[in-house]
Nucleic acid binder design. Structure first.
Lengths: 334, 334
DNA sequence: CTGAAAGCGCTTACAG
DNA sequence: CTGAAAGCGCTTACAG
């Protein structure tokens, strides 16, 4: 079953390959009607489907982009990916998604693979562990957009949440509702992970603005499997927090698991706000007040920035930072 | 910023392109040590990265597969995709995911695009609306695996849940717990959507096995936005059901939303089992008894079948049906 | 209005 | 042990 090529079509239609190619690319400018017809029916008869690989090789454009996500387990990643796909598919771009699993080595491999496959550009949730590689790509003007995390000293457009504001809003909301003993649980505070750092800073700043002294015992920075340990510790303090800010969806999940096994009542025993609007927030009992990231807008923005770069062959971008507004969704958990 | 090609490397190393190519493909059989070294350092000096597009064109293999999912909103789809990706990435295959959105036209477009891009094979959650196209591909021995849905009269390997059994297990569990008035809510029963049809049949069969007469009023087949309407109707029956089987995750979600707004207590007022083990099942209050699909094994199986076909250039498969066992996860919702 | 020719960046028999 | 040549399936100036 050998594939039918443009040569077969040309032969069948009694014209040259060039003419068939013109036809395929809709450059009809000077093409005779009968020629068009003959090519059309030859294509149908032979059931010809052009080989985009060959075209891409020649045109140096694959109409494909790569997305390398640091960790696919976050709802945020999922939503961003979906929105990138929607945006790109409408514009006849394909997207290849890779999950780096927070591992810089994997990230490196994926970047190199995608690059070798000649994808026209990449949207990366950077692990932060491949500075040299990021630099190399920007130096040669390769289209890249970063998502969610800022990499210092690199001139790449970056789309992310106004993370500090997310925490500010959350803490303010607690305070407005009468809570002053406010704890926070964060995943490990690694310097390169912008959202965590900024959110913790926002939390601290918000307390200071309200003249509430920071308490180290109210702050936990922990891997997911140890969330319950820290909660136990906090809630057994002489003066335990009455409210907890969950720094992201996975932390929130662990907190809710803890709450369930320990029969803690929300919000009577513990008020909760989570950053990331998890899908079950509205049906949970009580429904959960959350800070939503506009993941769809953010994905769309990143895709738009990238495709614009690809189409205009502009410089890789000025390292602009595009901040998106978090949205407080008030429900019943405080 | 022109790209460096194999010709540049050859020139720099003072050998021919052929030799560089041999080197790249690790055919060192007869290659002199000094030659190897020279090529190696030339590659490093020039920062050369081979163009896989050109290689693919020549070798007629792209090391990329396509996945076309009927509807990405289901957890099941998400998990299957993740598992396909993991499996493929380990084997240095890339995957391009497309969401057909339950629209046969979109599905057709995606199939044709992916085909034109020369992906080595596809895993499809078929909408069922493109029989001619599926046939065409199998006729030319193109590697395809179907997921989740059976398309009649087509010889394509298909991986799916033992759906009937899923319902049987659920209904049996209700009965063992003393429930005999058991309702079911299903998304629209379109003939081509195997899971729904089989699950409804399983539900009916299970009742018959226990000599419980079927009641049409206990069965709702409805779009998601009308789930609450049907629930209202059912629960206002003179003899309302005391238990409800949610046929998939999205239906379950709607039921839980209804339960919340109407302050219905689970399981006292209504017992629930959902097919699909939603992520929040364990932390929900009460935690939810579900029937889990082994989505990861299923994705892996599909990927494995496909890659085997691709590597062996075997016939497109005998139309084997690979059924996976549903697993009852007992929690507290009945 | 259409065709011949060169070329995209590789790989692969084959010759020596 | 290495190189010249042909070819993968397209596109694109350019000639006529």
């Amino acid at each position: 079953m050998k594939k039918v090529t443009i040569t077969d079509v040309a032969k069948k239609a009694g014209v040259s390959k060039s003419t068939v190619s013109q036809y395929l690319n809709e450059r009809y400018d000077y093409m005779g009607e009968k020629t068009k017809e003959r090519i059309k029916s030859a294509i149908e008869d032979l059931n010809y489907s052009p080989n985009y690989l060959a075209r891409s090789l020649k045109q140096k454009q694959t109409n494909t982009i790569g997305v390398i996500v640091a960790n696919i387990l976050h709802v945020f990643s999922t939503h961003v990916i979906r929105s990138i796909q929607d945006f790109c598919n409408e514009r006849h771009f394909h997207v290849i998604v890779c999950n780096a699993d927070d591992d810089p080595d994997k990230e490196k491999q994926f970047i190199e693979m995608l690059y070798a496959k000649q994808v026209d550009g990449m949207i990366i949730f950077p692990t932060g562990g491949n500075i040299a590689l990021y630099k190399k790509l920007t130096n040669e003007n390769y289209p890249i957009v970063f998502m969610d995390r800022i990499v210092p000293d690199i001139e790449i457009d970056t789309v992310l949440l106004d993370n500090k504001k997310a925490s500010l809003i959350a803490v303010n909301n607690f305070i407005q509702n009468g809570y002053r003993k406010i704890g926070v649980i964060s995943p490990p505070l690694i310097q390169s992970l912008t959202p965590r750092i900024e959110r913790i800073n926002g939390y601290k700043q918000a307390l200071q603005l309200h003249d509430i002294p920071l308490k180290a015992e109210y702050i936990a920075d922990t891997s997911f499997d140890k969330v319950s340990v820290h909660l136990t510790r906090m809630l057994n303090l002489k003066d335990p927090p009455g409210a907890i800010l969950a720094l992201n969806d996975l932390v929130l999940f662990e907190i809710l698991a803890f709450v369930k096994t320990n029969k803690i009542r929300i919000p009577q025993d513990l008020a909760i706000i989570g950053i990331d609007d998890v899908i079950f927030a509205s049906i949970y009992h009580p429904s959960l007040t959350t800070i939503a990231q506009p993941a769809f807008s953010m994905g769309k923005k990143a895709a738009n920035l990238l495709l614009t770069k690809i189409n205009n062959k502009m410089e890789t971008g000025d390292g602009g930072i595009y901040r998106f507004e978090p949205a407080l969704i008030i429900r019943e958990s405080l």
